[in-house]
């Protein structure tokens, strides 16, 4: 199979009018036969989280590529944890080198990485994951934290976990993260279910393995920041569907789609209220891997 990637992020109306920077960020790329798509959403009320979001995504990319170089494995159950450790090492060093504060690093990290044998999605924080099937089916998984207080990986890396647990009532077993799964099959029939994760499970993050068999049925895997759920007067499912309705898939396909989506969304309201970001992996049938690695 061929793997292609693209990503884009845009500032939302709220940050635009309040003079704040865009605190969402997304990157994607390919490396040695795998592809990755990473999104981060910085905490609005923390520090320089626009920087944090960027450092988190780039450190995640570095960790994914490094892990793949060393182990050649992104399908075993231990891969996400090993990548997480690699990322923390990279991130901690960069933060201190740049003189940034722990609160500058308060940003989510959701990513997908896939190769010929499959892969996985790991959501650490909130956002939306999409699996688009070749037959037209679609699965959207939305992650929301109670009290709009999402987990940020920096809580673990910077020893801030007790504060976060206290903010959620102090009980690690209490439900704190909601996963809403909306599916639409090829015939157009849709259904929705939801389940709660405990605070402890939410901190570990939502893990979505992608088997080789499943990957072969997919045309796109996409990761969105929670900005997709806050487009004025557009339901989050419709927003995701529209952002995945690529008119052409050459080059900057996700960037084009998001630009046009945001333009058209202004017909019905203010468009994205919050910053919005997404990163997409396109799975195309047989052939060569994307020509150039993205420099990890």
């Amino acid at each position: 199979m061929k793997l292609f990637t693209d990503d884009h992020f845009l500032i939302g109306a709220m940050h635009l009018t309040s003079g704040k920077p865009c605190q969402d960020y997304a990157i994607s790329g390919s490396f040695g036969g795998i592809a990755y798509a990473i999104v981060s959403d910085g905490c609005s009320s923390a520090g320089l989280t626009d920087m944090g979001a960027r450092l988190i995504t780039h450190s995640a990319a570095r960790a994914i590529c490094g892990h793949w170089s060393v182990s050649g494995d992104i399908v075993s159950a231990s891969a996400p944890q090993e990548i997480e450790i690699d990322q923390e090492i990279v991130l901690g060093g960069i933060r201190q080198t740049l003189g940034l504060l722990p609160q500058d690093m308060l940003a989510t990290c959701a990513y997908a990485c896939v190769g010929a044998e499959g892969g996985f999605v790991h959501v650490r924080g909130d956002g939306v994951v999409a699996f688009v099937e070749k037959d037209g089916g679609l699965m959207l998984l939305r992650y929301d934290w109670a009290n709009n207080t999402p987990f940020y990986p920096a809580y673990l890396a910077e020893n801030l976990l007790p504060t976060f647990i206290s903010a959620h009532g102090g009980d690690p077993d209490a439900p704190a993260l909601t996963e809403t799964v909306w599916t639409k099959d090829a015939s157009g029939k849709s259904s929705e279910t939801s389940r709660r994760y405990s605070l402890k499970a939410g901190i570990a993050g939502a893990m979505l393995p992608i088997s080789r068999e499943r990957l072969e049925k997919l045309s796109f895997v996409a990761i969105f920041s929670d900005g997709v759920t806050q487009v004025e007067n557009i339901d989050w499912r419709d927003a995701a569907v529209q952002l995945l309705s690529f008119k052409s898939v050459g080059g900057l396909f996700a960037k084009r789609r998001m630009i046009r989506f945001v333009q058209t969304s202004h017909a019905s309201g203010k468009g994205p209220i919050d910053d919005i970001a997404y990163a997409v992996i396109r799975i195309a049938p047989d052939g060569k891997q994307k020509g150039e690695d993205s420099g990890c």
Binding site: S248, G250, L252
Partner: peptide, 8 residues
């Protein structure tokens, strides 16, 4: 051809 165009 449109599939040869990659920019925005």
């Amino acid at each position: 051809r449109f599939d040869k165009l990659g920019s925005t």
